[in-house]
Design a protein around this nucleic acid. Structure first.
Lengths: 343, 343
DNA sequence: GCCGCTCGTGGTAGCGCTGTCAATCGGTGC
DNA sequence: GCACCGATTGACAGCGCTACCACGAGCGGC
């Protein structure tokens, strides 16, 4: 009874090594660090592996080496298009590297996040990307105990668990509202949905900009915890208009709401930007192509994902960045929907 | 030298077993099938595990058991919102089950898909979800060799590798175009982008519907391999109008193009639906909230993901479905943008 | 009272790979 | 010519868990 539980067709490293006429460990090295082998052995292992159709057993590798070449990504939502771009950046940056991405969905719940973090802990990833800076105490403990580089993305704050790539949602919202004020708008409302921590900070930016301009009025603020969407944008604007008939601008905490608001204006024949200015947040592709084109705050989502992975891989491989916190900034995209109304 | 390479704080099953006063294998069973233990042992293992903060080592489990509790998902795009809903269905259905989802991005390349399939092979997933029915020969060989249930999603065809959940893109497009014809439209164009296999089949549906009505004209067809987007929808419509000035309807092979086309009409002051009818494909949320509201073909994307996972888990656990191919159908959502023009 | 059954439990022996360290080899400096 | 050095290579011993099989206890049927 040579091998008790062996699977029929499974080709192992030993088989490859035997065919190549080298020791298993040499064959192993070929797959991890080919340069360490002499050219002749390298070629022999390579052709042997190809001939046998060898596929390495990742579980065995992970067990023996006490680590995996996985980068874990925790994001709050799949439905939110914002994360599409981030994920694209993550995938692009990881492509060609030895690391593969495993991403999980926290559904905007920090408890779910904690649970998933624990799950990752069992997997010993090489690195981790987590969204935002509002984790539970327990989550932070787990992250610190995990002994792998970690990048927090989407926003920046004073106390990174390890590294950070993001921007200030507060500043971005402040800039958007300041722009509306500078265009002569006075009754500037804000509509918001889902109100996650980053959205809250945008709301704060709005509040402070309005306060500083002496324009603050609680009636101008309309938010709901329900998930966002274009339809909701229309509904919220309708409600806000009922509350504030002399509204002359609306800052939408995301672009979906802004587009919904635009359609609502079209439905009500409210001219944009003449009677009502609209500014969104994120600058999704459709903002520029809408009619009128919609102003928004461009956030560097693709770059955020890309840079997070780059920093992570660098850190995993021992090249720690000199600056652990990277501010990617934002850019106010002024378009037709927020032009100065005719005098 | 008891343990040569042991990590300092790593708590293993053996430790838990010792504290609980049972054998390691009994502790192991507790985590996999608690019902098999007597109540007293179960409680003792449970409290011991909690006390030590035991986290199972997934790699070791996978190595010993020759399988992982992972469902692999291959999808072609992250940027395409269509897959958001599918993924949401997948996540929802997997939640609460023992399986975790690992998804990878083929970027609409069947070669990339083949490569990723090979990667999954090394991981021995419990099940696999792949997009579409156009795999390479090699991919199909790999899938057949993988010895796990597989569900192909997004469309259905005559030869499932294993199981399928989807609908007929041909029929759906045919229905959409027939609707426009029934509304009295004659010069019905089609604009398309990225032209993946499923989009190609929609184009076929359009072609046949037009041919059967005696309305076919190659000038009415405008497609491009470039990625889709709202901006592109405007551009394509502009180009099509230049080519076919008497265009009275346009079938857009996805909703992004449809929305871009609507904005282009607004920009050019072409009344929709009076002068031009618009129908999209997929029925994203924004279609109903646009002004005018946009007609589309509703596809059951969420259900597709959900059902795929359900079928997969059932099959993994030995409950093979009676019907391996599930047609989720579609529904034509007729809205303002394709209403009959006034006589 | 004995048989055979099921249920719960434990011992043994790996799963396929890599970390560690020692051995080997060809070339180098003096 | 010899000690020495870096570059390659290999032997050994696990990594933490579970499959397999064995075993004993409890129990109903005859």
């Amino acid at each position: 009874m040579a091998r008790k539980r062996s699977k029929a067709g499974a080709i192992r490293l030993t088989e490859v090594a035997k065919l190549a006429g080298v020791s298993p460990i040499t064959a192993s090295r070929f797959f991890r660090n080919p340069e360490a082998l002499s050219v002749s052995k390298r070629e022999r292992v390579e052709s042997a592996a190809k001939e046998l159709g060898y596929v390495p057993n990742l579980a065995a590798r992970a067990l023996a080496s006490q680590r995996t070449e996985v980068i874990g990504v925790l994001i709050p939502s799949l439905t939110n298009n914002v994360f599409n771009d981030v994920l694209r950046g993550i995938y692009d940056a990881s492509e060609g590297s030895r690391y593969s991405i495993q991403f999980v969905n926290t559904r905007y719940s920090i408890l779910q996040e904690e649970k998933l973090l624990r799950l990752f802990q069992a997997q010993k990833p090489s690195g981790l990307i987590v969204t935002g800076i509002n984790q539970t105490e327990a989550s932070i403990d787990i992250m610190k105990a995990m002994n792998c580089p970690i990048v927090q993305i989407m926003e920046i704050g004073p106390e990174p668990v390890d590294m950070m790539v993001g921007f200030s949602h507060y500043d971005a919202a402040f800039a958007a509202v300041s722009h509306l004020i500078s265009q002569g708008r006075r009754r500037i409302g804000i509509i918001g949905a889902r109100m996650d921590p980053r959205v809250q900070r945008r709301l704060e930016g709005y509040r402070d900009a309005m306060k500083q301009a002496g324009l603050a009025d609680p009636a101008l603020i309309l938010t709901t915890p329900t998930p966002t969407g274009m339809t909701l944008g229309g509904t919220l604007l309708a409600d806000l208009l009922a509350q504030v008939p002399d509204l002359d601008a609306v800052f939408c905490i995301n672009d979906d709401l802004a587009l919904g608001a635009l359609f609502e204006c079209q439905r009500r024949q409210i001219p944009v930007p003449e009677k009502l200015a609209i500014v969104g947040f994120n600058d999704m592709e459709f903002m520029a192509s809408a009619f009128p084109s919609l102003s928004s705050v461009r956030t560097n989502r693709y770059e955020m994902g890309r840079d997070a992975v780059t920093m992570l891989i660098d850190a995993i491989e021992g090249r720690r960045p000199e600056k652990p916190v990277v501010d990617l900034g934002f850019e106010l995209m002024v378009r037709g929907s927020s032009a100065r109304p005719r005098a």
